[in-house]
Amino acid sequence: MVLDPAETKEMVARYPERRSVVLPLLWRAQERIGYISDEAIGEVAAAAGVPASEVSSVVTFYTMFRREKPPARRLQVCRSLSCAMAGADELVAALREMPGCGEKFSVETVECLAACDRAIAGIYNEGLVGPLNLAGSAKLVRDGGAAGAAAPAGSSGAGAPLEGGGRP
């Protein structure tokens, strides 16, 4: 069992219709085991009352769902306009040349993270980070955890003047 049956039951009850629970349950499965396994798809399908093939189809639509176990450290770098203008492509290319890329850690590109004020923005595992520079993000994927220059940002605004959204 990937999902906790009691919790699944509670989540199904939140919605007026059962099948709405597909995405929340898929998220829960991914939180628990790091990816969406075939077993998880079967459990989600049973809970939501839809065929497994349909759940599987839904999983392939959304880019954040993974069908394979990822490395322990994952950095996703935004490659959309503002971040690209700040050099996201070069950053990704440099990080991908580091030893251990693909096995110990992964560097992926993602589309806009709604953090353009912090270009180059990224998501490290499950937290927003930025602005990223090479040294900081290299340290992040190599050693994990919060790294100086690429410290996981709080939310955009809190603790910093609104007018000066740009981070030092």
Binding site: D38, I41, P51, S53, S57, T60, F61
Partner: peptide, 21 residues
């Protein structure tokens, strides 16, 4: 009311198929 053939992936990568079997 079965879903033997479904859409897989999205955008220009989208295909049809029997996902998972």
């Amino acid at each position: 009311h079965e879903r033997n053939i479904v859409l897989i992936e999205r955008g220009s990568h989208m295909t049809i198929g029997t996902e998972g079997r």
